[in-house]
């Protein structure tokens, strides 16, 4: 019951706010909607028993990425005329393309998947699993990230990637001397 409610609320938030993100004229409101959409996704994670990921979603997407985006919007606010058209000239074609993509994905999920998946894969119901296993997920995740038999290399690579991105972002966005003067 609670799970369904969480899922429905989460989906409505994610999709509705996502729609606002892609259609809104006011970029700032778009960013707010993006935040709400992230919140909805976090709710979807909750309905999937991934509490840790939901918290991570809040921390990283809302606490970091959204704020970064809002900062960028404020820094480039002169370009934010709400009067001009938010869409470019190819918006109809784009609509067609994304509808096509959705149609493909939808048919893949609804029609093709049942053709490929053997009957052993439970599609309708979640795999029953003890609470203890889900509770241990975070512990397992931690040991998988730093264990030698886990994702230690990708994990370290990800940290290097973040470091490089940080350095790169600072260098790219650093005002050049002539700009300051």
């Amino acid at each position: 019951m609670a799970e369904q409610i969480t899922f429905i609320i989460g989906s409505i938030l994610a999709l509705g706010a996502g729609f606002i993100v892609v259609t809104n004229r006011n970029l700032f409101h778009g960013a707010l909607a993006l935040m709400i959409s992230f919140l909805g996704v976090a709710a979807i994670y909750l309905s999937l028993d991934a509490g840790f990921l939901a918290a991570a979603q809040l921390l990283i997407y809302i606490g970091a990425i959204s704020i970064l985006i809002i900062f960028a919007i404020m820094l480039t606010r002169r370009m934010m005329q709400t009067t001009e058209d938010p869409f470019n000239s190819q918006f109809l074609l784009a609509l067609a393309a994304s509808v096509t993509v959705f149609a493909i994905l939808f048919s893949a999920i609804v029609y093709v998947w049942p053709l490929t998946a053997s009957n052993s894969v439970p599609l309708a119901a979640k795999t029953a699993v003890a609470d203890a296993v889900l509770q241990d997920t975070v512990v397992n995740l931690g040991s998988a990230f730093v264990g030698a038999d886990g994702y230690v290399i990708p994990f370290e690579l990800a940290s290097i990637l973040l470091l490089a991105a940080m350095v790169g972002a600072i260098i790219v966005a650093w005002p050049k001397p002539e700009d300051v003067a």
Binding site: N88, A94, T100, I104, V112, L115
Partner: peptide
Amino acid sequence: QEYTLVSMLLASALIVLILAINY
């Protein structure tokens, strides 16, 4: 954006084709 759009459309067509042939 236009480039991505076109490549996405072509990729979609390809996927449809593959799916259609396979299944």
